[in-house]
Design a protein around this nucleic acid. Structure first.
Length: 358
DNA sequence: TAATCGTGGGT
DNA sequence: TACCCAAGATT
């Protein structure tokens, strides 16, 4: 499909984009910018990996503080590998998609224990590690090791759909968009190029109101010519979110300890701390974790997950030192920070700590 | 293949 | 308010 003409065009396109990146690259805590890179500075594969895991389905703005905190606490993969599970899960709390944190630890321990602390330098080797899929393997390979790998994230899908004015809805369009992206990937500076396409998507070729007027790919863009850029990419309609109901129990012992439980490693909020409670469904049943004078709060906690809305009714109780719960364990104040809780559970804490029972 | 898995910000 | 979206992986 790619004849001599096409090859030349593609080389021109990547050169245009790299030139734009040299002038407009975002400065990011985990990034070695184009000037420093040209001067020979190499990125730290640990920092590249950590940032890529955090950035999965997560905005740059949300990641920055977590990245700074993690790298301050654990500057190397070996130190992260030696951390306690509960500590890492607590630091990840609030960032979401908690399987990432569990796989982060698994991966760190494999790299530290089986690879001498060095990340594999091949796409296949990276891809074999927990939490590293097709995108992340390509990103680490290109950015950390300058492997000629093609990254395809949401930015790249959008940029390619517009560049080729492809109306095929996602996710069905992904294989073709991947082929488009692969055909454009240059052999020179693949790491900078990968970051350049993503920067273009994040700052110019945005989902809404794309800034086509300042785009380095304005001339070759088929959607720009057709006037369809803002409508692409097409996506298949999403399923409506059902409402689920639940009950959460917040017990405060007289010495200031809170009754919390560690959720199982699999499923929603896996591996995180939470308040004991009912199942979440159509008709939750009262399942208090201990006998007490439970007081119902008038305000429920509302939270929306990826695929359902949750309304949690709250029950609070003050209990004596002799309290013997059937679930969970009492954590004294010095062993528990509200920031260790996933957001939905922190909402429960905030309501229980501030609402007056009635 | 399709469902599951979080959260905060923007519109 | 409600919906969309963000550097996806796993099963």
């Amino acid at each position: 499909m790619r004849d001599g003409q096409g090859e030349g065009r593609d080389t021109g396109l990547s050169r245009e984009l790299l030139g734009w990146y040299d002038a407009h690259a975002r400065a990011l805590p985990w990034r070695v910018g184009p000037a420093a890179r040209a001067a020979g500075e190499a990125p730290d594969p640990y920092r590249v990996w950590l940032s890529e895991i955090m950035l999965q389905q997560t905005t740059v703005a949300a990641v920055k503080a977590y990245f700074d905190r993690f790298t301050a606490l654990w500057p190397t993969v070996g130190e992260l590998a030696a951390a306690e599970d509960a500590r890492v899960m607590g630091e990840w709390a609030g960032l979401g998609y908690y399987a990432r944190a569990r796989n982060l630890l698994k991966c760190a321990r494999i790299v530290a224990g089986e690879h001498g602390g060095a990340f594999p330098r091949t796409i296949e080797g990276l891809r074999a590690l927990p939490g590293i899929g097709p995108y992340t393997a390509a990103a680490i390979g290109a950015i950390a090791f300058d492997l000629p790998a093609t990254v395809v994230d949401g930015n790249v899908e959008r940029v390619m759909a517009r560049l080729h004015n492809d109306p095929t809805p996602l996710p069905a369009a992904k294989p073709r968009l991947t082929a488009y992206a692969a055909a454009l990937t240059p052999k020179a500076r693949p790491g900078d190029y990968a970051q350049a396409v993503m920067d273009l998507g994040a700052t110019v070729c945005t989902p809404r109101n794309p800034a086509c007027g300042i785009c380095p790919w304005r001339a070759p863009c088929a959607a720009q010519a057709a006037g369809t850029a803002a409508e692409l990419p097409k996506k298949t309609p999403k399923q409506p979110k059902p409402v689920r109901l639940g009950i959460a129990y917040v017990a405060l012992r007289e010495d200031g300890a809170w009754l919390l439980e560690r959720r199982p490693d699999t499923g929603l909020l896996g591996g995180m701390l939470g308040w004991p409670g009912s199942d979440w469904g159509d008709a939750p049943q009262e399942t208090p974790p201990l006998e007490a004078d439970w007081i119902a709060l008038s305000t429920e906690a509302r939270h929306t997950f990826t695929h359902f809305h949750l309304r949690l009714s709250l029950r609070v109780a003050h209990v004596p030192l002799s309290a013997a719960p059937s679930r969970g364990q009492f954590l004294p104040p010095e062993a528990f920070r509200p920031s260790d809780l996933p957001t939905v559970m922190r909402k429960v804490f905030d309501l229980a700590a501030t609402q007056r029972p009635d």
